[in-house]
Amino acid sequence: MRVPCPICGSRDSREFYYQGAAVMLNRPDPGAGDGAWDAYLHLRDNPEGETEELWHHSMGCGAWIKVTRNTVTHVISGAVLAREAER
């Protein structure tokens, strides 16, 4: 499996650490309430199709990237730096 790092180019997935759904980028306000924080920390969708995830290029440039991956076909259709991703 190849992951397209926006900095390094196409690299083998063994260079990356998989964090999880990219909802972690959308941190709720500290006062958003228990419901919002519970959802942020624990509740995840299990989509069939395109999903957005956070990967860390831990063995390469060290960038966090937001990867768009299809859970059915495993096609990776895009990757952007997490710091440049739309929130």
Partner: peptide, 17 residues
């Protein structure tokens, strides 16, 4: 390494496993 060694030419650096 999982990177093509041909990429590692003078003037270039690769970070990898």
């Amino acid at each position: 390494i999982p990177v093509d060694p041909a990429e590692i030419v003078p003037g270039r650096v690769v970070r990898t496993e």
